[in-house]
Nucleic acid binder design. Structure first.
Lengths: 143, 143
DNA sequence: TTCTCAATTTAGAATAATTCCAATTACAAC
DNA sequence: GTTGTAATTGGAATTATTCTAAATTGAGAA
């Protein structure tokens, strides 16, 4: 197992932004940090609250801007369920979601390559999927 | 193959509403008919336009009310993708969706029971799914 | 038939999430 | 330092949807 160092994450962040000709500003960096620190799928509002602990004067508009930028740079994924506010997570590996209907909590279910292939086999010929979105809901009974 | 008669659909509609102590009004019936007539996943706005051909003075609020009622009665499914307006469809059999990124068109992909079981096998133990939502997006290349 | 009353419909106001806009601020390159 | 573009900001605007309170409907009672 291998967990990225703070430094290598910082490099990745800088690199992905610079690749697109964008600046790694402190607002963007702070929004990204907040998502890495607690991986619980916060909404923009929740991100605002957390980021303000470091940057008390950041605006909601900026949080939305930063999140959009991070999504465009493939640093963060935007997660939508039903019509509830968008949630954001830094898990870039292919995964499904499970929402516990009791607690509202969202779990990432990482998928193996063969599982993804299995999913794509559900497609009739003529359909070419670039993306998929898979969300389960029900009750989670965890240790 | 077997296609339901207009009458049996009418009965189903009346029954499901009466089961819940609700009235099969002309507005509700008309909204349901519109969904059955063209199964292309219209939004509430689009449903409004279509229903007004029969009931010119129906309001948008009523269309929303009717759609909600039909969903509650399990006559219609509400389909959400990203943060776009909710879409509605009368296909109650378990299915996934495919959205063509070129045309925006949405296709139903009906799933067999074994395929649904396959999907549920993606869940680690402790997760009990009552529902799932599976949407692919990409390009459709159809005859 | 007429009356009654709860269910339904309706128009418009309210809400919530998000995007837009125009004015400032920040910062990299010269 | 100056300049120029990118980024941030507060507030207004937009969009989908829900809420509200008044009017209408229709089924059953009298």
């Amino acid at each position: 197992m291998h967990s990225k160092t703070a430094d290598s994450l910082q490099n990745k962040f800088n690199q992905k932004l610079l690749d697109k000709g964008l600046r790694p500003t402190k607002q963007r960096s702070c929004v990204y940090d907040v998502l890495l620190q607690k991986k619980d799928h916060p909404t923009a509002d929740e991100v605002l609250v957390r980021v303000r602990k470091k940057l008390p004067s950041i605006s909601l508009a900026t949080v939305y801007n930063c999140l959009e930028t991070l999504v465009d740079c493939s640093l963060v994924k935007q997660v939508n369920m039903d019509r509830s506010p968008s949630k954001y997570c830094p898990n870039l590996t292919p995964h499904a979601h499970f929402r516990c209907s009791k607690t509202g909590r969202i779990y990432d279910l990482n998928l193996q390559e063969d599982e993804i292939n299995q999913l794509k086999e559900l497609l009739p010929s003529g359909f070419n999927a670039e993306n998929f979105d898979l969300t389960f809901s029900g009750s989670a009974n965890l240790p």
